[in-house]
């Protein structure tokens, strides 16, 4: 019984449970469902409208984009903007750099963040609170102010315009550590205590018990890290000095001029750039909800 009380997350109620169409635990009646759907749809329309406009704009000729009264649909559809993105940017190189940059950061950072979070959430040691607060404090200083000292430091290391300069400073983040710590802290303790008594090493407990229990949090952080680094544009532009080191968002910025904006190409480029993120999100979605049910741990 103690398992049930102290570790509520471990539950026999899995996906298959037919009673799960619930709102905070109780079944939803059809009229309430209808209301909820109305709410969900109307919010989705408001949230999605700018993207619809972005998408439609990417298929318009310039005269359709700036017009009065504003035209919702193109008078004439065109894929010229997509062709221009293709031909005016060294697309393969930008995508390759973006992949190297955001994937290496995302994967390594997930590993480092989760290890650090594990120690902060599950291990007892003196100074734990101080370390935790110190890590939180690093989130509180605006990056704009550390950018110049960091630039000089990277220059001293000879890391300007290198992949290590781009990647290494990003390999962990206070944000990720904090997020995982909050998740780990609410996991049940029983399994790892049992494992400890059996003499399992801390690394084994972390790798074989805590991580598998943390599917939703890891998947969430995966999407966040990937999204953040894929879209980030100031950092790559500051650290790199040649075009062959640039990433996709920095390439898109070339369609924005000081005095003019190439709306169509920019929107087409932004649509293409968002695709990998949407794919990643759709894949990760399954893990947002999988939770403990998938780990096969039963009482």
């Amino acid at each position: 019984m103690s398992v049930q009380v102290t570790s509520g997350a471990v539950s026999p109620a899995g996906k298959q449970n037919p009673k799960r169409k619930r709102f905070m635990g109780s079944r939803i009646s059809p009229p309430v469902q209808l209301l909820l759907y109305l709410l969900l749809v109307s919010v989705a329309v408001v949230v999605g409208m700018p993207f619809l406009i972005m998408l439609l704009t990417s298929f318009k000729f310039p005269t359709d984009i700036i017009s009065y009264p504003p035209r919702f649909l193109p008078t004439q559809w065109t894929v010229t903007n997509y062709q221009l993105v293709w031909t005016q940017l060294p697309f393969a190189m930008l995508v390759r750099n973006s992949l190297v940059y955001s994937f290496s950061i995302t994967l390594i950072s997930l590993f480092f963040d989760s290890m650090c979070a594990y120690a902060l959430a599950r291990l007892n040691f003196r100074g734990r609170n101080v370390v935790f607060l110190a890590i939180l404090a690093t989130m509180m200083v605006p990056v704009q102010v550390t950018l110049v000292p960091l630039f000089f430091n990277l220059f001293e290391l000879g890391w300007i315009n290198t992949f290590q300069g781009l990647i290494v400073p990003r390999l962990t983040s206070a944000f990720g550590i904090f997020l995982l710590r909050q998740f780990f802290i609410s996991l049940p303790r029983d399994f790892e205590d049992a494992a400890r008594i059996d003499g399992a090493s801390e690394f084994r407990i972390y790798w074989q018990i805590v991580l598998p229990l943390s599917g939703p949090a890891i998947a969430t952080l995966f999407v966040f890290h990937f999204m953040y680094n894929w879209n980030d544009f100031l950092w790559p532009l500051i650290v790199t000095t040649t075009a062959n080191m640039r990433t996709l968002p920095t390439g898109l910025a070339l369609f924005m001029g000081e005095h003019n904006i190439e709306y169509g190409t920019l929107m087409a480029g932004a649509t293409i750039a968002a695709l990998p993120l949407i794919i990643a999100f759709l894949f990760a979605q399954r893990y947002f909800v999988a939770g403990i049910a998938l780990t096969g741990i039963k009482e």
């Binding site: 972005m54 999204m227 879209n231 924005m256 920019l266 929107m267 979605q285």
Partner: peptide, 18 residues
């Protein structure tokens, strides 16, 4: 959930223009 998450997936600079 996908639609609600969409705003953070797209470049903010482009969203600002829209």
């Amino acid at each position: 959930r996908g639609i609600y998450f969409l705003p953070v997936l797209v470049s903010f600079a482009v969203e600002a223009i829209v």
